[in-house]
Nucleic acid binder design. Structure first.
Length: 627
DNA sequence: CTAGGGTTAG
């Protein structure tokens, strides 16, 4: 009886026997579970046939994964036909592994194998292969799968439609995405979330918010997507506002929400909220989440609290390249380039492989310390030793490094010989160097290029006119300002802000129209006396107007960062660090003044400008006056 | 427990 069953089973199908012909060795039974190639699989099958055992003893998912991408696909099919499980589901789980791993191309290939060997596909097959298409941004292949979805008869499966929506939106085919979204027979919260995320990613945060307001129901992911969207589009304040609103609805932030809100805090320099979120995160058990830790590092760095960033970094059990790069970059912009380089060495020792961002931080560190040769070495080393070819940003850093250090000729040669077309940032760095070196001729070359590359950016005109003014070439300075006016370029108003007890106070230059304005001016006058006795002399060269010297002094005394500082001295209790943010670069006179003031008032003053941090303490600045 | 959406450093 047993014998006849065996005869009837596909075990003894002639085809299968034929296909394992040539395997003469009798395999070890361990091969039944540990075969790693179709060849070994065939030995295992031969063994089973010879010993009259069922093929179902084979681990089927292993059979599938070994044959999936080979010409032995039909061999696996024959095995599956003898077992009590749907063939398609075995291939599907294999497909899923590929699509969720790093072999997306293989997932696509397996899909085509399944097609050509007539496996009857189901929704899951389509779903998994769509995931691979999205990961590969392979819109064309995705459209083909879309065709199958229609043809196979599940065109109204909501999960699949959402996967297709995701595909179109992610691959930039917003027209298709919109069309699909509009004609979907029904939508759920996932459909809306996909649209919101992708619109915001494309910069259409207004469109995203429209949908967010319109959607019938929102879940935590909807809020998170919208908060992330605002942050991504540079609207950190809106992100925070939305987060507060979300909390009011009673929803609790998860890890991803926390990352989004921390990123908003980093942008705004909102240390108080950042600390609150940090506490919340710890209380919620997110302490070990690497994304969160990395974002915390960035947040503390951008809020000017380097020590807190270090503490988070040091406590991390596992670090990724992002953790290291964020910390290195943070040390660099805080003026601790030496520590940044040490950290880089430590990282290399630990076997961590640097990437292009890591080198950006390193070059930054060298640039801010004037380490020309070290910078050059790293620049060479990155492609030679780490196989990372420099991007435009790295060239920008090098041009900054060289020109800032006075090597304008070298910088110019680098610009004209670089294999990528120099952009405005590169020429802008060069122009900045020209200003430090007071090289009018080179600056004129830079501004010529910038007039084409980025004619509406006010910063470059200001620097140029500054260079002329410092050379006392008032006519030329005026000409640049007129050029600006003719081209309709508006000067970005400078502002400084300081946060006291959760309220942010913004100052613009000459601000006399606010409460406490009189007291601020009075306190400034007192300070000025002390400053002068310590040798402070106003540096009026930063004033671009051709006016009387004492008029110029009045201008510099009312710079926004000075007003913010005095306001802070009056309202923040003694001993506490004063943190100021500025949207432009800190001016030279303010820089000199802050050094003296830090000594007089015996407090630490941290200023975040648009490029870096200045930490003033005991009469010195962490940038060592090289910025 | 075979499927779809939100995350970090420049």
């Amino acid at each position: 009886m047993l014998h006849s069953v065996c005869l009837a089973s596909p075990l003894h199908s002639p085809k299968l026997k034929a296909s394992i012909n040539g395997t003469s060795e009798v395999p070890n039974t361990t091969l039944l579970h540990h075969f790693t190639s179709p060849y070994e699989l065939k030995q295992a099958v031969a063994f089973l046939i010879k010993t009259n055992k069922p093929l179902s003893l084979l681990p089927l998912s292993r059979v599938a994964s070994i044959c999936a991408l080979t010409p032995d696909f039909p061999f696996a099919q024959q095995i599956f036909s003898s077992v009590d499980q749907q063939e398609v589901s075995i291939w599907n789980s294999c497909l899923r592994n590929l699509a969720e791993g790093s072999s997306l191309i293989d997932a696509i290939f397996l899909f085509h194998q399944m097609r050509s060997y007539n496996v009857s596909l189901d929704c899951f097959t389509c779903s998994f292969v769509l995931k691979a298409c999205v990961g590969l941004r392979d819109l064309l292949r995705g459209r083909i799968v879309h065709g199958y979805v229609e043809k196979l008869g599940f065109p109204s499966n909501l999960v699949l439609l959402n996967a297709l929506l995701h595909l179109y939106a992610t691959c930039g085919a917003m027209a298709d995405a919109n069309l699909l979204f509009d004609k979907m027979p029904q939508r759920d919260v996932v459909s809306w979330n996909i649209m919101i995320t992708q619109l915001a990613k494309k910069g259409d945060v207004g469109g995203a918010f429209d949908l967010f307001e319109k959607m019938p129901e929102r879940n935590l992911r909807s809020w998170t997507a919208m908060i992330t969207g605002f942050v991504h589009c540079g609207k950190a304040k809106e992100a925070i506002r939305l987060f507060v609103e979300m909390e009011e609805t009673g929803l609790r932030a998860n890890e991803v929400t926390v990352v989004a809100v921390l990123a908003a805090c980093a942008d705004l320099g909102a240390l108080d909220l950042g600390r609150r979120i940090h506490e919340y995160s710890n209380k919620s058990g997110f302490r070990r989440n690497v994304h969160i830790c990395n974002t915390l590092i960035d947040m503390y760095i951008k809020c000017g609290w380097l020590e807190a960033a270090k503490a988070v970094f040091n406590e991390m059990k596992e670090r990724t390249i992002v953790s290291w790069s964020a910390m290195i970059q943070g040390l660099a912009i805080h003026g601790h380039g030496d520590e940044a380089l040490e950290l880089f060495n430590e990282m290399i020792k630990m076997g961590m492989k640097p990437n292009e961002v890591t080198f950006l931080g390193i070059l930054h560190a060298c640039s801010h310390m004037g380490l020309i040769n070290k910078g050059r070495e790293f620049f060479t080393s990155m492609s030679r030793d780490y196989n990372i070819s420099p991007q435009i940003e790295h060239y920008g850093c090098m041009v900054d490094l060289l020109s800032r250090a006075g090597l304008l000729q070298d910088a110019y040669e680098l610009i004209t010989s670089m294999p990528i077309k120099p952009n405005a940032v590169v020429w802008g760095s060069f122009l900045g160097g020209c200003r430090i070196q007071k090289d009018v001729k080179m600056a004129e070359e830079a501004i010529r290029q910038l007039g084409v590359l980025d004619p509406l950016n006010d910063g470059y005109y200001i620097i140029m006119s500054n260079i002329y003014a410092e050379a006392k070439r008032w006519d030329n300075a005026a000409r640049v300002r007129k050029l600006m006016k003719d081209r309709g370029v508006k000067k970005t108003p400078g502002w400084s802000s300081i946060t006291i007890a959760g309220t942010t106070h913004e100052f613009v230059a000459g601000d006399d129209n606010r409460p406490q304005a009189e007291q601020i001016f009075k306190r400034w006058d007192e300070l000025l006396e002390q400053m002068k006795s310590k040798g402070y002399v106003p540096n009026t060269s930063v004033v671009l107007l051709d006016i009387e010297e004492n008029e110029k002094e009045k201008y510099v005394y009312r710079h926004s960062e000075k007003l913010a500082l005095v306001f802070g001295l009056m309202n923040i209790k003694p001993g506490e660090t004063i943190r100021i943010m500025k949207n432009l670069r800190v001016c030279e006179d303010c820089h000199a003044a802050f050094k003296v003031i830090s000594e007089i008032v015996k407090r630490e003053i941290v200023v975040r400008d648009r490029n870096r941090f200045h930490c003033f303490k005991d009469g010195f600045c962490s940038c060592k006056d090289y910025w």
